[in-house]
Amino acid sequence: MKVSMTVNGKGVERDVEPRMLLVHFLREELDMTGTKIGCDTSQCGACTVHLDGKALKSCTMLAVQADGADITTIEGLANGDLHVMQESFWENHGLQCGYCTPGMIMSTTALVQDNPNMSEGEIRHQLEGNLCRCTGYHNIVKAVQQASEKMGGGD
C-alpha cells in the first residue's frame, strides 16, 4: 500500500505492507534509527514519536494508519542545536546507555508541553509509559523538572 506522510518536516512516500509498524517504517524504510524498539507490548516507550503533535508509541500503530500524518522523531525534535529537553537530559545525566533516551525525550517533551507545571510526583507518575533500566529515573526526573522551568513552567 502507498503511504505518504511528513516526517520531520519532509514529505515521504513509500509502498509498504499493511502490517508494517510505524516504527519499522521509520527505522527500515526511512533509515531513521533514532527511534528504538524495546518491547512487544507497548510498555517500554522507547519508540515514542510525535504524531500531529501528540506522543505516540510508534510500535503500536501501522504505517498505513499514519498515512497523511505529520511525524516528529528524535532526529527532528530540535530546531537548530538541541531542544531544551535534550539539553536538560545531558546537563542532568538523565541517560546512561541511551537506549530509552529518544523515547524518554519525545515522551517528556510532549508531557511538558501539555503541562509545564508538573510536580515531582506528577512527573514520576506520567513517566509510567517509559522504562529505563540504567538511571533509576532519579536524574530523568531532575531533567524534566529543569526543562519544565525553561519551557514556561514554574509560574
Partner: peptide, 8 residues
C-alpha cells in the same frame, strides 16, 4: 495505559 496510549 499511559499518556502515549491515551492519545490514540
Amino acid at each position: 495505559g499511559d499518556h502515549q496510549v491515551r492519545n490514540f
